[in-house]
Design a protein around this nucleic acid. Structure first.
Lengths: 377, 377
DNA sequence: TGGACTTCGTTAGGAAGTTAACTAACGAAG
DNA sequence: CTTCGTTAGTTAACTTCCTAACGAAGTCCA
């Protein structure tokens, strides 16, 4: 790769806000970046020269002279987001303004194919600036040196399988899938406009994505939000066991309790959480009481989060957590136990993880441009 | 008050690092503030003119020309820290470099006297730039408008009693006492050099001060770290009750359990937690097993914190929590349940709260100088 | 069609800070 | 006592960005 033409500080700032806005006029860029008009003019000229911005039409704002509109140029390049989900692998390629450029979706086993497919669909001439891989595991610094690796064996093999398909020389960032989904809620979901909130995901397992001041909180071991480790059961005369909480509040446990509670007269016992919730929505017993009970359990989980963080907002997500049937039960239990805290359902479904990973990748990619060099971490 | 002579940005930056360092030469200021020598020279001249800095001797660094040393000037003023503790009220007046200028300590009932005493001992000519009041309560914005007030009735009356003694026109900041103690550990205690940790205080009640990236985390309601609201008891067949945890793990509960476990042959039953710990230190039963049990309980509390935050370090404080006898038991239980997390005992005793409040007040005071105006929040 | 008005973008002058080079002051070695 | 190396502080030229003012290019309205 040729000499990276280092940008001046103001040009970097303008590029960052241009990427965020997608397309903008010079006066808009000036106000967004907090710079003066002459400085923005100079910066735009610089970006245009480097191919990082292009003139893309004009905008007439009713009265007055019409302004030139700028968008990202071809040299700005793209980023890649990979969600190594439990069942499917989802890949997205995006421009630095967040535009979707390529998409792929395969079964987990064909993860590398999905990556190759998406890479092939990206524009060839421009640089790939960052890769974010979302995994259902805590990640740790790679012992070898530069990169990151999943901390446990859980996500290791799939990650390795995908790694071989990734182009060399591009910074790869590992991120927890719940954290990614939280970012998706922050940017285009139920937590838009917030600076601090918790994204509580309830499905087969439980997890929490913490956003404080617009930033994901990762923790010293990248394990912040790993609620499965909350002490449970916990009472004067009971010893907590490791990971017992997940076995209790996860969807497996929900189905197990359904099997126990179900009578012959209740009809066929549901095999999936979705089916159980559907029956509950029809008001059928014992589905309804099981779901109500589940809501109280989730409310307690939320109370544990609130007791520590007091985030002000909790977004419920995940295969069982996102169901609006839970909302009132969760709110009641949380209100009973803890601080006034808003509770809403996720607005983004299964795609949350890729979407959030793409947001993160875009942010890394923009950093890569504005800081001129490879971005570490 | 006369026209506040607004400082230039660089002079403000230099003042901030000078306050932090206490005394420094111009080259030191340049490197600390990240400014060039000429700029620092200009800034120092500006500060000296405003009385915010004074020449205070020279430092010869072995070889080469000896540099002029500067310290804070008389116009830099002072700040006040007030700890409204459950038994005693502690007040400290400090210069903006942290130097202790005045100190007072009275029973809780004579809080206003302590404030007046300390105020009288502060230099008269210079402005009082900030007041921080530490209380054992969550604080909320004052309904009247500008200030803050304790959120519940718990600390309200004492706060009002102190308020009348505070000079008008000085920004008052309320802060939770546990958060203050956490700041003390951060700056001059067991968490020195850390950026993120949790300060777990166990005494009559339980509380957690959270420091992330050197900043105290307050939460949406100022209630972050109010662990008393953790769901407890919690099991498949048990309903959590509000505030039940504090009644269980607080020192009252410890003494209640001691009374239950004590036999005639064990000698006199201890009336205070200190006495119980002393007996345990001698290896006497049942004190030893009660303390061991308490350690496991604290470990579970720590595990709840770790599951949410993964802070990497937990500092144990408070009347029972700070006892080193707990350490190994807490570490064992925490290690069993959660992530690798360092656990150490507090290095600062009862003074932690005032010391931390003073740190906070100094920070506010420096902001007050560099930003020229009243600092809100 | 031609002001009147509004907004865009550029030009000119100034404020603030940086680098580079120079002078000033101090200690130690000859 | 001089000389040399080292560090402090100043001066000068240059960079970057801002404010202010002006010319350019639109819309609105008679």
């Amino acid at each position: 790769m040729a000499e990276a033409p280092r940008l001046t500080e103001s040009a970097g700032a303008v590029f960052a806000v241009l990427a965020q806005a997608g397309r903008a006029t010079r006066p808009q860029l000036a106000s967004l970046a907090g710079l003066s008009k002459p400085t923005v003019s100079a910066a735009v000229a610089e970006l245009e020269g480097a191919g990082l911005a292009t003139h893309s039409g004009t905008a007439s704002g009713g009265t007055g002279r019409s302004a030139a509109v700028y968008g990202l140029g071809p040299a700005s390049g793209s980023v890649l987001a990979v969600d190594l989900g439990p069942a499917r692998t989802r890949v997205r390629g995006c421009a630095l303004d967040g535009t979707l450029l390529a998409e792929a979706d395969t079964p987990r086993t064909r993860a590398a194919d999905a990556v190759r497919e998406a890479l092939a669909a990206l524009p060839a001439g421009a640089p790939l600036r960052a890769i974010v891989v979302a995994i259902g595991d805590v990640s740790a610094p790679d012992l070898a040196g530069t990169g990151m690796r999943p901390a446990t064996a859980k996500a290791g093999p799939v990650f390795d399988a995908v790694s071989v398909a990734l182009p060399p020389g591009v910074p790869v960032h590992l991120e927890n899938n719940v954290n990614c989904a939280a970012l998706a809620e922050l940017h285009e979901g139920a937590a838009r406009g917030r600076r601090t909130f918790g994204y509580l995901r309830i499905g087969v397992g439980v997890g929490l994505g913490i956003v404080i001041g617009g930033q994901v909180l990762r923790g010293a071991n990248g394990a912040a939000g790993e609620l499965a480790r909350l002490p449970y059961p916990w009472d004067d005369d009971r010893e907590p066991r490791q990971e017992a909480l997940e076995a209790y509040v996860g969807s497996q446990a929900l189905l197990r309790r359904a099997a126990e509670a179900w009578r012959e007269t209740d009809g066929p016992c549901p095999r999936t959480a979705e089916r159980l919730f559907a029956l509950a929505a029809e008001g059928r017993e014992p589905a309804r009481s099981l779901v109500a009970r589940h809501a109280a359990d989730v409310g307690r989980l939320a109370a544990a989060v609130t007791a520590v963080l007091d985030p002000g907002l909790i977004v419920l997500g995940g295969s069982t957590g996102a169901d609006p049937q839970l909302l009132s039960g969760v709110r009641t239990e949380l209100g009973r136990l803890s601080w006034p805290t808003e509770v809403v359902s996720s607005q983004i479904g299964d795609l949350g993880t890729v979407v959030g990973a793409a947001r993160l990748a875009v942010a890394k990619g923009v950093q890569n441009v504005t800081e001129g060099a490879q971005v570490k971490d």
